[in-house]
Design a protein around this nucleic acid. Sequence first.
RNA 1: GCCGAUGUGGCGAAAUGGCAGACGCAAGGGACUUAAAAUCCCUUUCUGCGAAAGCGGAGUGUGGGUUCGAGUCCCACCAUCGGCACCA
Length: 850
Amino acid sequence: MSHLPTKHYPFREFEPRWQKQWLHSAAFHALNPGERGFDPQKKKRYILDMFPYPSGDGLHVGHLVGYTATDILARYYRLCGENVLHPMGWDAFGLPAEQYAIKTGEHPRVTTEKNIARFRKQLQSLGFSYDWEREINTTDPSYFRWTQWIFLQLYHAWYNPQTEKVEPISTYQGEDVDSLRLAYIAHTPVNWCPALGTVLANEEVIEGKSEVGGFAVERRPMRQWMLRITALAQRLLHDLEKVHWPESIKQLQRHWIGRSEGAEVIFTLRNHPEKTIVVYTTRVDTLYGATYLVLAPEHPLLDEIELSSTTREALTAYQKSCNAKSDLERTDLAKTKTGVPLELQCINPINGEALPIWVADYVLMGYGTGALMAVPAHDERDYQFAQQFHLPIRPVIQTALNSSLPFSGVDGEIINSPLINGLTPPEASKKIIHWLQEHGHGRKSIQYKLRDWLFSRQRYWGEPFPILWENGKHRSLDESELPLEPPTMEDFRPTGNAEPPLAKAKEWVHYSEKVTRELNTMPQWAGSCWYYLRYCDPHNSSSFLGKEVESYWRNVDLYVGGTEHAVLHLLYARFWHKALFDLGYLTTEEPFQRLVNQGMILGSDGQKMSKSRGNVINPDEVIQEYGADALRMFEMFMGPLEHSKPWSMRGVEGIYRFLGRIWRLVLVEQGKGEFSIHSKIVDQSLTESQTRLLHATIKKVTQDIESLSFNTAISELMIFVNALIPLSHCPLECIHVLLRLLSPFAPHLAEELWSYLCNAFPVVKSLGTLASNSSWPTWSEDQLLLKEVTYVIQINGKIKARLNLSAHACEADVQQAALDHPSLQPYLTKGNIQKMIFVPGRLLNILLMP
RNA sequence: GCCGAUGUGGCGAAAUGGCAGACGCAAGGGACUUAAAAUCCCUUUCUGCGAAAGCGGAGUGUGGGUUCGAGUCCCACCAUCGGCACCA
């Protein structure tokens, strides 16, 4: 398959040479305020890639789509004279490294270092213009010191519902401080994955299986660290309005946050008026239609109430069977509903009716109040359940079309409901809520699907919590004791039970005689929640981010990465950012102003690239055969950035040929491997049409880069080059403009050819000794004006002729020219002209009536 | 089921409501060469008439609509991909 094509240009020699030069001269270092040479007049621009997890497989061609796009932008804005922050780093804690380490026995620190070295080398071999002085690594103590520090800020903070802000815990006046912290301990059922030996966040469980490895996940109650992300649910939802993100991603986050407006209704037990059941409903207008209540199997009331021994037995058995079910089984929609009756009744406050109480696992403890009023006539699930257990179904909404039950819409009229008969459902809801509030039977309520973030893992390869335990109580480690490094351990495998592996480091565990350390570690997301902040000030040892630096770089202008992080990383990072904002450490409310998702690169078979399919493309091999410039440029030429598109090695070859044509346009070979400037390149003025083409090219390429339409920018460069090649005398200006336009896409080739031009033409040298450090060419609209334009002449909307007319021709001129045109006469004599539609510079449409 | 994205030649794709298919790949033909590679030139949506230059018709997932004019705007539907899914 693989053949070595004839070398069109000596990229194997010059690409590494320029990479070395850029690296050693720190050519792309962005200056911070206070640094020598910092120019406050320059516009700042922060262009960020989602940093990679340095896996053992090395870089993937899919990574490069986003990285190349941001590199083009970074290089472009630098040429435009902006101060561009374009950093790279490593998201190196996490499960895969640890799983690999367990498999091979090699310590994760060693494999991580190896993988990072490989990734760094690969990225450098693509000529990306990262500021390597800002490289960060989430597993570096000088980095995770501040991850732990931020955790402590959350631990020492609470959400004040009065001010609607995150505040230091010291502003809280009440007793139970620990129950309010943003980082808190909870004993709740969690997603336990026996195969991985750890718990997982809801977001890391896909269809009942672990996202990493695809292992079965079960529910079990455990003591865990949680982050109170739900406190900020409303702001996380609302502030999506403020960012320039793809609508689909915003929509995903909105769904994930899942705000719903409704009411809580209080039902009292019939024979125990002191006991109540609070239900949450979004359809309080159907309150008269409630025919029974349902509690989640985990509902706390179930442990408090007295039941007959047979009912208690049935309940216990049912609870057990629910517990044993995996999440997958429990959320399987196809299955028939299950439940047990409690032989208890409660009173509907609106009409005093006694309703039976059931327990069923279609009610989730984690949402709302863990209890619902069932209105089978107007809810799909309640209807199913009622049918199955022969419970009464009472319609309370009359629809115009007499729709069949269950009817869950809101177009209709309330019936069978004394207080609200004749109202529309929305009107009825308002009235009922008012009534409930007035009589103390309930209130308006807003619920979110979003749950608090399960933040601890029973693994070794993560940030240890800066938390100590004494007599069953937790307290924080002093900030001066950070970083808290994990112990050096030979055996870091999961213990096989719920105890974290750090428990095996007996010495490390004991902080003092009576005080032990927290044994859990943070999840992989911790480090990536704030890395974009650290890039701004990566070497600061007294703060996670200096004030002056923060007020300069502020937040990310453009963030490019895959859709897979839509609800995990992107939501978590926004949460931390907002908390840090409230606590006064940041001056922006959102971390990422603009977000773009690059599409996937599929195998040449159109399938997702995977080892098992054998359609994976290794970028190293592509670079070896065609060079970095060809690889970069092909990935951009394939199609729109956001689209998924299949790989084509022939396509790379096409780009490679194009770059070769540019090489031969500028240089001729004098003997083997010796090149000199082509004699046809002359410093002469441009013809009118050349000027127009030059300016049109500059305009199109500039605008396409700014709108991230790299594929059409490259097409335009091709059109330009195709026009230059046949010229017997090629004006120098065309060439030096071409190279500058090319330099963000194919930086090595542009740099190499630029150096030849510099030696031969002082004019070029005066523009900059490096293409990457010259300036972006500008265009003038005046130069784009045509003397003559082609008018399309249509008759009844069909094109019948094309006329070349002066650009100054007015409507009457064009009409006259069309009516006089000989080839149109046969048509014109066939009917009367009704109307003529004129589009200046473009077309004339003559409407004829026969 | 709900939400979102996409649908244009053999393929990747391009088109502020105004010449559909730019640019590239693949394919075919030619030049150069002893030959090949590389390079350069030409053809290439489908289709009817024509020896040819040329002349005509259809065409952007399907069906409607708005408009002088629709790939582009509106409505309905179909297909593919991605996400969510007993959230009361």
